[in-house]
Amino acid sequence: MTVTLESACELHPQVAIRPEPFGALAYHYGNRRLVFLRHPDIVRVVKTMGEHKTLRDTFVAEGVAESRWPSFIEALSSLTTSEIIRVLS
């Protein structure tokens, strides 16, 4: 599923995040998928996205430079496929 800047998303409640030197590992206890979050910024976005109305708000709050938004949107879209995050609206 593709997310946009206006999407409201949250970390899936069955996912745990473990910090690692490269970023973090995310594990989904339901579908048993293990996913690598390969930058500390994407880890912060994923952890805090549930507190914001849209991804745009999350990026702004976490200080993600606008030039990086497209690559973040792409990465987050793939995280919906593995159900690490889910779209609320």
């Binding site: 473990r18 030197p21 490269f22 970023g23 590992l25 293990l34 390969r38 994407i42």
Partner: peptide, 19 residues
């Protein structure tokens, strides 16, 4: 998003095992 390949990072070890 990172300067090293994932394989390279894995070879350097993780804070705890995956498997």
């Amino acid at each position: 998003m990172s300067s090293h390949s994932l394989g390279q990072q894995m070879k350097q070890g993780l804070d705890a095992p995956i498997c």
